[in-house]
Design a binder for these strands. Structure first.
Length: 449
RNA sequence: GGCGACGUGGCGGAGUGGCUACGCAGCGGCCUGCAAAGCCGUCUACGCCGGUUCGAUUCCGGCCGUCGCCUCCA
């Protein structure tokens, strides 16, 4: 098995990856909060980790990927109130949209997609464990995590508790024993239209605890990889790690992987900034192939600039691959191209370097294009498949309508009669129907424009 | 202010102590009646100032700039 090397946020180094159980890898990724439809930025971790799972499977691992949905959250209450709908209804609607929008990426579903609202029991149990061990305390119906009680707090995000901004005016400040403490359980407040029972009274879980409870529940503490956006490193992941460490006496995950932010005009795409491109609109405009290739164009840890130009380039790349696909034949690829396939996967094994892998893939494309004899698509299919783009090799089987074919045939006659003026005229006529005619050694071809 | 990341050719984007990344766009050529597609060639860069070194884009220091987190944003 190829040695996989991964960058771990906690150690800030790239190191060989070893799963806790040979041949099996468990991954938990923080998904969206469903208070609105997701934007392209939200899609990055979904794409990155869905594709990363494919690569691990290619390496021979059995993967369990869980990506949660946060459906209990302040933002949801606020958004629901603004729209005048029940928060539960809004969360349900936006969850459905999330599934629908990410389905269109064509990368399959994660193995688990837990909803916070369906894990309240486990969440309460974990909070109870923290209360019992003295890592959490009650205050006015709320339950808070005692940050100073965790000596390892800050080691993931490399922050010194003493140097943290003490944050004035933060919610619950009056109840906390220390400004750094954060809520595990929030007592029900007026205006909130959903609540759950707990030993500490009616209320709802804080944000961070759900991920500890769900990831532990699905994968067991000490699972292999925890992923998510870099913006979640602090406080979210630091808090998750602290909760599990204190409640279970074990680290939550072995490796922490964080994807970089999607930026628009050098600013992070965020609803608070107002520079939002909803995923479904981007898919409408550019197609899922270009979107997936766009994400592969930059290393997952780097920020990536979103815009018309990068997407247009991705579309051009998609077109080039489709173009090559027309010339390939089914079956295995020539052995002389095998080293390129090896380099492609070696690049992915090196901290999942998709742009480096793509560079090799383009070399493969060029080599295949310059070959005069039919080239087997096997290796390319294998590479594209791992990137979720094997469909580019499928025959679009676009059949031109018979009247367009008739025009093309008429053009062939004109060409053989060397009546090129007439031939060009007919090409225009064909273009007007939405088709391009392309002349080849074996006659014409018709392609949709 | 604290912590961190990053500054690569027209654009996007990898990587490396000395050797062509790659893609898009442009230009020239081959092919083609002309196109299209493809191929070949070309444009050969590493923010600024020092230091280490035989040699630095790559290591170290400083500066400038951009971005992220520190405010329950993927």
């Amino acid at each position: 098995m190829t040695e996989l090397r991964l960058y771990d946020t906690r150690t800030r180094t790239v190191a060989p990856f070893a799963p806790r159980e040979p041949g099996r890898v468990s991954i938990y990724v923080c998904g969206p909060t469903v208070y609105d439809r997701i934007h392209v930025g939200n899609a990055r971790p979904f794409v990155v980790f869905s594709l990363f799972k494919r690569f691990l499977e290619h390496l021979g691992y059995a993967i369990t990927l869980a990506i949660n949905v946060t459906d209990v959250n302040d933002k949801i209450y606020v958004a629901a109130a603004k729209r005048g709908v029940a928060s539960v209804a809004l969360a349900r609607e936006m969850t459905a949209h999330y599934i629908e929008d990410t389905d269109r990426l064509g990368l399959g579903r994660p193995d688990h997609e837990p909803l916070a609202s369906e894990w309240i029991e486990a969440i309460v149990a974990e909070i109870a464990a923290l209360v019992e061990t003295g890592h959490a305390y009650l205050a006015g119906g709320d339950v808070y995590f005692r940050v100073r009680g965790d000596e390892a707090y800050g080691t993931l995000s490399r922050r010194e508790p003493d140097q943290m901004d003490q944050g004035e005016g933060v919610e619950g400040a009056a109840l906390k024993q220390d400004p750094l403490d954060f809520a595990l359980w929030k007592a029900h407040k007026a205006g909130e239209d959903s609540e759950w029972g707990s030993p500490w009274g009616a209320g709802r879980p804080g944000w961070h605890i759900e991920c500890s409870a769900m990831s532990e529940g699905l994968l067991g503490p000490g699972f292999d990889i925890h992923g998510g956006g870099l913006d979640l490193l602090f406080p979210h992941h630091e808090n998750e790690a602290a909760q599990t460490r204190c409640a279970r006496g074990e680290e939550l995950a072995h490796v922490w992987m964080h994807n970089g932010m999607l930026e628009l005009g050098a600013a992070k795409m965020a609803k608070s900034v107002g520079n939002i491109a909803p995923l479904h609109e981007v898919l409408d405009e550019h197609g899922r192939d270009a979107v997936v290739l766009f994400f592969c164009g930059a290393h997952y840890r780097q920020p990536i600039d979103f815009g018309a130009a990068p997407l247009a380039q991705a579309r051009a790349n998609v077109a080039r691959l489709r173009e090559l696909a027309r010339k390939l034949v089914d079956g295995s690829s020539p052995p002389e191209l095998a080293p390129l396939r090896e380099r492609f996967f070696a690049s992915l094994a090196d901290d999942y370097n998709t742009p480096a892998a793509l560079a090799v893939l383009w070399e493969w494309v060029r080599e295949a294009n310059r070959r005069s004899e039919p080239t087997g698509a096997g290796d390319l299919r294998e590479m594209l498949s791992v990137l979720g783009l094997a469909n580019l090799l499928d025959d679009p089987s676009a059949q031109a309508p018979s009247e367009v074919v008739a025009l093309a045939q008429a053009r062939e006659l004109a060409r053989s009669a060397r009546d090129f003026a007439r031939a060009d005229e007919l090409r225009e006529a064909i273009a007007a129907t939405g088709w391009a005619v392309r002349d080849g050694a074996d006659g014409f071809e018709l392609l949709p424009l």
